[in-house]
């Protein structure tokens, strides 16, 4: 099987269209399961009462906000090194979804912070760097639409994504490096999770659901981007031929 075939927007277009519904379907099913665990199986937290249930959307959204930026940076590297149009499009297709998750992480965090900390917002390192991430997403999208030449916009935003990805580890490690009001990681790769199993299970299922949603939505947006861009090419070709 020739995998390079799929790096062409024209051949990937129908593939994206046929894959997207499956990802979105799985996302929906896992979301229902995750919400069931979040509201009916997970016990009340002995310190935070029922307000802690916000973490079932807050943590997965925050994780996605960081993951998506790293993946955009990854596609940018592929695009810059192989000069493949589809890689740039992949990065571009992910940006709005990443921005939405960043927004949700900030707002749900705020909604948790008010009853727990007594403040909607504090300028601690975690919150501030996450807010910067939102600005980076917006900046990425604004930069792409500001440049008329799409190929140039692709390369410029790829470099931008690559350089600004340095903010992601800063967000992740902010709770270690600085004295933050935001609590440290409850789930990490190196230590046993500091929470009940069923809570962890709910959070992981919600995270996988958000993952599937992100892939499905990115594929749909990729189709839109391909259709909109190739239309211009066809239009250009026809215009040039008629001269």
């Amino acid at each position: 099987m020739n995998w390079y075939k799929f790096s062409s927007p024209k051949t990937f277009y129908p593939v994206a269209g046929s894959l997207a519904p499956y990802f979105l379907g799985v996302a929906g099913a896992l979301l229902i399961l995750g919400l069931y665990i979040a509201f009916f199986l997970a016990p009340t937290d002995f310190q935070q009462g029922e307000a802690y249930r916000i973490i079932f959307v807050h943590v997965p959204a925050a994780w996605m906000s960081m993951f998506v930026y790293l993946i955009m940076a990854g596609w940018s590297v592929v695009g810059l090194s192989l000069n493949s149009k589809l890689s740039y499009m992949m990065a571009q297709a992910l940006a709005p979804t990443g921005a939405i998750f960043t927004f949700l992480a900030l707002v749900t965090g705020s909604l948790w912070g008010k009853p727990m900390w007594g403040a909607w917002w504090v300028w601690d390192a975690r919150l501030t760097s996450e807010l910067i991430l939102l600005f980076l997403y917006v900046g990425y999208m604004a930069l792409h639409s500001a440049l008329d030449d799409v190929r140039r916009a692709d390369r410029a935003t790829a470099v931008f994504a690559l350089v600004s990805a340095v903010n992601v580890p800063i967000i992740y490690f902010s709770v270690k490096w600085w004295n933050t009001l935001h609590q440290g990681a409850s789930v990490s790769l190196t230590q046993a999770p500091a929470m009940a199993k069923i809570m962890l299970m709910g959070m992981l299922i919600m995270s996988i659901s958000f993952w599937m949603y992100t892939i499905g939505v990115a594929l749909l947006r990729l189709q839109c981007i391909i259709a909109e861009r190739e239309r211009e090419i066809i239009w250009m070709n026809e215009a040039q031929r008629s001269e």
């Binding site: 919400l35 009340t44 009462g49 029922e50 307000a51 249930r53 916000i54 079932f56 959307v57 807050h58 707002v107 749900t108 909604l111 948790w112 008010k114 009853p115």
Partner: peptide
């Protein structure tokens, strides 16, 4: 939601 309904339901 144990008095936190406002915050929880807006989040979700």
């Amino acid at each position: 939601m144990g008095g936190y309904g406002f915050y929880v339901w807006i989040s979700f």
